[in-house]
């Protein structure tokens, strides 16, 4: 017993020294546990969507908590119904990305680097545009599209859907381009490059990550659009996936595994963006050619 006395005291001393760190360490992992729990609650609907999409279709009153008897029947049926709509959504989203970047990139550059009149007005206009409800735009466009024969057309939806992408793309790319040092653009101009040349060979390559970020978000906004799909189409010829899902849930359905399978398919871009954009958002924030 007495032999142990000395080491015991040393141990107590060490314990005094390390206790706060151990404690802090423990509270940190406790926070992680709480964080995971909160996230499980927040993401439960997403889990439930996937779970139901894998359940066999049928008159089950109580759905199983886990997809033990996983089946792909829901996906087969959803793909059969919605494949065309998925293609439509993809075409509209890609078209909107192209249009948005073509229109927004030069504007973002001008708003970030030129000291011309009108910059303030355009920026103010963009901010105000965020306040205009989509239903106002849809209301007026329906009449205009009717005259221009743009109802039920992919170009019509691309242009209308870009109302979400273009202002966002301008703002995010402008924020990035504000950080491009004027000196490297000036240097290019000294070497004889015009404004357009400097834009194409200096600004565009440097801003690549900002363009990717803007493009990804534009894709997602357009892919998710429901209001314009609902109001600017009157037939089933042009029907994005969001409208397909709305029609699924509008009519009484007992076959929820198919509805959820379609919902999962419509969620794929969001999940991909969440994994991919992480990198691009970080890169966009830290990018810059001249230190």
């Amino acid at each position: 017993m007495t032999d142990n006395a000395l080491p015991l005291r040393v141990a107590t001393q060490r314990e005094v020294a390390t206790k706060p760190r151990v404690k802090r360490h423990r509270t940190k992992w406790l926070s992680t546990a709480i964080g995971i729990l909160l996230l499980c609650i927040m993401l439960f609907p997403v889990y439930w969507m996937i779970n139901i999409s894998l359940q066999p279709a049928g008159p089950a009153i109580e759905a199983a908590w886990f997809p033990i008897h996983a089946q792909l029947n829901g996906y087969v049926q959803a793909f059969h119904d919605q494949a065309g709509n998925l293609v439509t959504s993809l075409l509209i989203a890609l078209g909107s990305v192209v249009i948005s970047l073509v229109i927004a990139t030069p504007a973002a550059y001008a708003l970030a680097q030129f000291k011309v009149k009108g910059v303030g007005i355009v920026l103010f206009g963009i901010l105000i545009s965020q306040m205009i409800p989509g239903i106002v735009v849809a209301n007026a466009l329906y009449a205009a599209y009717n005259d221009l024969h743009l109802l039920n057309s992919i170009p019509g939806l691309i242009l209308a859907d870009s109302t979400a992408g273009i202002p966002f793309a301008i703002l995010i790319m402008r924020a990035f381009m504000l950080n491009i040092p004027t000196s490297i653009i000036e240097a290019a101009k000294v070497d004889g490059a015009g404004n357009f040349r400097a834009f194409r060979s200096i600004v565009l390559p440097i801003s690549f990550n900002a363009l990717i970020t803007a493009g990804l978000f534009t894709f997602l906004f357009t892919w998710s659009d429901f209001l314009f799909a609902l109001t600017l189409t009157t037939t089933q010829n042009v029907q994005p996936i969001t409208l397909g899902i709305y029609q699924y849930i509008g009519t009484f359905t007992a076959d929820w595994s198919t509805v959820m399978a379609a919902a999962v398919m419509a969620s794929i871009p969001a999940i991909v963006l969440l994994l991919a954009a992480q990198k691009f958002i970080a890169a966009g924030a830290t990018g810059g050619a001249v230190k």
Binding site: K28, W29, S31, T32, G35, I36, L39, M42, L43, P45, V46, W48, M49, L220, W223, S224, F226, T242, I245, Y246, Y248, I249, V259, M260, A263, A266, S267, A270, I271, L273, L274, Q278
Partner: peptide, 26 residues
């Protein structure tokens, strides 16, 4: 805390899903 960055980015998922998908699931 450990994993806070990962958890924070996963939390964005409800915001990124198409609204009509969220409506259907709920």
């Amino acid at each position: 805390f450990p994993l806070s960055g990962l958890l924070r980015s996963l939390l964005l998922l409800p915001w990124l899903l198409p609204l009509i998908v969220s409506s259907a699931v709920w």
